[in-house]
């Protein structure tokens, strides 16, 4: 289903690959863990429907998926199981399948409970627990209509690390998945680029950037979805323009890129990012048409931008094609 949606989107919009987005408060502050490794425990009861230990293995695999990113400094420390089955502040970051103390309601499948505080002007995580709904069925082997523990948890851990939803349909951080499908176990480059920004690895191979401004005439365009497409036609990294219209596409491997800006209208919209109607991204602009750098409507006509190691290239959008109608 997800693949089908992706194919359809590509056919209709020709290029729709979307942005990693950091969790952002209305102040503009984004949280991160102040130090690594982040310790975690698994509630000893595990998932009540699974007795072969694969639930515990799936949890650890989810954390390892993020930890294995070579280009980011992420480390988790598995501390073993704990008799604690409830979420809440106790000095431990716990994954539990049996919590019934938190008034989450019957429709919640999984939730991340994050405590945070301000430290030296930075927003930092103090503790974070993840709870699966104790009354729902989970699986580790793609059973029909059951939620895959590793897929759900990999997504939740992305939030635990400070990532918001991504609009990139192939990413783990997209705000919708499908029961029994396993593709959200595997990170997309967009997910990886997101945590490379939050937890940079100083020894990672040098990459380049494309920076610029998205504006309609002299008016900044907030929330334009700006995408870098590599020489092979793959959308590699994307981001959303800020309130002043500025954007930065980071962590671009050396290559030649074409860049486009599009409205964040479908399939993911501002409703799926940053607090919906009240959040940071609630006032983004979507009344313009997808435009490639060079003020053209197709990838093949777009102006190519060469990016070398540690290069900072520039692409400024000043005019837009008209939005599609009908």
């Amino acid at each position: 289903m997800k693949k089908y949606v992706f194919i359809l989107v590509v056919l209709v919009f020709s290029q729709t690959a979307r942005a990693y987005t950091r969790i952002t408060a209305t102040s503009g502050l984004s949280p991160k863990w102040a130090s690594m490794p982040v310790p975690y425990w698994i509630s000893a009861k595990g998932s009540p429907q699974i007795s072969n230990g694969s639930d515990m293995a799936a949890v650890q695999s989810s954390f390892r998926t993020w930890e294995n990113i070579q280009t980011a400094s992420i480390a988790f420390s598995y501390k073993g199981t704990t008799p604690t089955g409830t979420v809440g502040r106790d000095g431990m970051n716990v994954v539990t399948f049996t919590d019934n103390s938190a008034p989450l309601g019957s429709s919640t499948i999984a939730a991340t409970f994050s405590f945070f505080r301000t430290e030296n002007g930075q927003l930092v995580f103090d503790e974070s627990d993840i709870a699966f709904n104790a009354s729902l069925s989970f699986s580790t082997s793609a059973e029909t209509d059951k939620f895959d523990i590793q897929s759900v948890l990999t997504h939740e851990i992305g939030h635990l690390l400070g990532l918001d939803h991504s609009a990139m349909v192939s990413s783990v951080m997209v705000p919708f998945g499908v029961p029994s499908q396993l593709d959200q176990r595997v990170l997309a480059y967009d997910d990886i680029a997101g945590v490379m920004e939050i937890y940079p690895n100083p020894s990672m191979p040098p990459t380049g950037q494309i920076r610029g401004i998205v504006q309609a005439g002299t008016t900044p365009v907030f929330g334009a979805h700006v995408v870098a497409v590599d020489s092979g036609g793959t959308a590699v990294v994307s981001t959303l323009s800020q309130k002043d219209g500025s954007y930065v596409l980071r962590f671009l491997p050396p290559d030649t890129y074409r860049v486009f800006a599009e409205p964040l209208d479908l399939p993911v919209t501002q409703q799926n990012l940053g607090g919906g109607t009240n959040g940071f991204y609630s006032t983004i602009k979507t009344n313009f048409g997808t435009t490639y750098f060079g003020n053209v409507s197709t990838l093949s006509d777009a102006t190519a931008i060469s990016v070398g190691p540690n290069d900072v290239a520039t692409a400024i959008f000043k005019r837009f094609l008209q939005a599609r109608r009908g």
């Binding site: 991340t112 997504h155 939030h159 607090g275």
Partner: peptide, 16 residues
């Protein structure tokens, strides 16, 4: 106050 709308996603069943 600055963090009043800070987000981390919760996975839920869709309810029409």
């Amino acid at each position: 106050m600055a963090t009043a709308t800070l987000l981390k996603a919760t996975t839920v069943q869709r309810l029409g």
